[in-house]
């Protein structure tokens, strides 16, 4: 109550006109009525059977039921590596484990999901749900980052030919819509491969995503590179550092640190963009939701499903953003 009164007084101090009160009152009524309607729908009208009956399918797709423990272990490992990274690390061993885990998380994921070496092998077309979304995001991101850095260095360099080539690639990729890149990735990659070599739908999607995202990452990293004053390069070469050493120890660490906020946006964007594969027939989170909605038992339950997966997307996007902010803080305190 006291907070409320103080708030009212603040409002009065700021602008004591009547119009402001009327706007506030109208808006408050509008918000309350929308909220009441939403709560009413949420608790009374909504048919949550569509979620409860398909709960594991949203997360794991059509993965065989007796093998559910494999993706679960992978998810636990991801969460573990995130938590270990966030903690202020005092222990050297914990630090080592966290680096080890984050390097191994993708090979482990592919091994745990795909099988082989003693585990029953499960083809990639049976992967699905949130787990596929995560794997797609991680694989594409890990491939796109080095490619983007190389492109950024190329575009930043004085060498005429290398500069032109990187620029051409970046401009070309940024001019195309993602859905077109993904579609032609599915269609054209097999055409450019030698006869006999075939790669599956999932891998083609990863390649298309990383080609696309690398162009955007390149521009972000280039922004970081440009923020470094040229005097630093001059002093580094005056100290006798070689070209490669300048890039490795002077340019890149600073450029990447400056680029972290925009790289975070790219990561969240990539995570959300994996939903486009739903149009191209991959059963990731949105794809599996669309096929659940096509089931005659759950016809018309659009809103329930959309609200549910919107919350999942929102949650994970927020986790990525918070995690990146934490890393940024750690790096800045390191400085």
């Amino acid at each position: 109550m006291r907070v409320y009164i103080r708030w009212l007084q603040n409002m009065k101090l700021k602008r004591s006109n009547i119009l402001n009160y009327i706007i506030t009152l109208l808006l408050a009524t509008l918000i309350v009525s929308i909220l009441v309607q939403f709560v009413n729908w949420f608790f009374l009208e909504a048919n949550w059977n569509v979620i409860s009956q398909n709960f594991p399918i949203f997360f794991l797709g059509l993965y065989p039921k007796d093998q559910y423990w494999r993706p679960l272990i992978w998810i636990i490992l991801i969460i573990l590596s995130l938590v270990l990274r966030i903690k202020k690390r005092s222990n050297k061993r914990v630090q080592k484990i966290s680096i080890f885990l984050s390097v191994l998380i993708i090979p482990l994921g592919i091994f745990l999901l795909g099988g082989g070496l003693g585990l029953t092998s499960i083809p990639s077309r049976e992967w699905g749900g949130l787990i596929l979304t995560l794997l797609l995001t991680l694989c594409s991101g890990v491939l796109a980052l080095p490619l983007g850095i190389i492109l950024a260095l190329g575009r930043h360099s004085n060498l005429y030919f290398i500069n032109r080539i990187s620029r051409l690639y970046i401009e070309f990729m940024r001019a195309l819509p993602l859905i077109a890149v993904l579609f032609f990735g599915q269609l054209l990659i097999p055409l450019f491969l030698p006869i006999g070599l075939e790669i599956n739908r999932f891998l083609r999607a990863v390649i298309a995503f990383s080609f696309f995202t690398s162009a955007y990452i390149a521009e972000d990293v280039r922004g970081g590179l440009q923020s470094i004053p040229p005097t630093q390069i001059e002093s580094a070469s005056a100290l006798g550092l070689s070209q490669r050493q300048i890039i490795q120890f002077v340019l890149l660490p600073q450029a990447l640190r400056t680029a972290i906020p925009s790289l975070t946006n790219q990561a969240v964007g990539l995570f959300q963009n994996t939903s486009l594969m739903a149009i191209l027939g991959l059963m990731e989170l949105l794809g599996i939701s669309r096929s659940i909605l096509a089931n005659p038992n759950f016809i018309g339950n659009y809103l329930e499903v959309y609200v549910f997966i919107a919350i999942i997307y929102w949650l994970i996007g927020t986790v990525i953003a918070l995690f990146a902010r934490n890393i940024e803080h750690q790096l800045n305190s390191f400085k």
Binding site: T24, I31, V268, Q272, L286, Y313, W314, G317
Partner: peptide, 24 residues
């Protein structure tokens, strides 16, 4: 605008829309 409710609504709109996929 200086109206806290309007400000909150605007922040909510920007944050919510940017955190969910456009396709959805």
């Amino acid at each position: 605008s200086g109206n806290s409710l309007l400000k909150f609504l605007s922040n909510f709109y920007v944050a919510f829309v940017r955190q969910t996929p456009l396709l959805l």
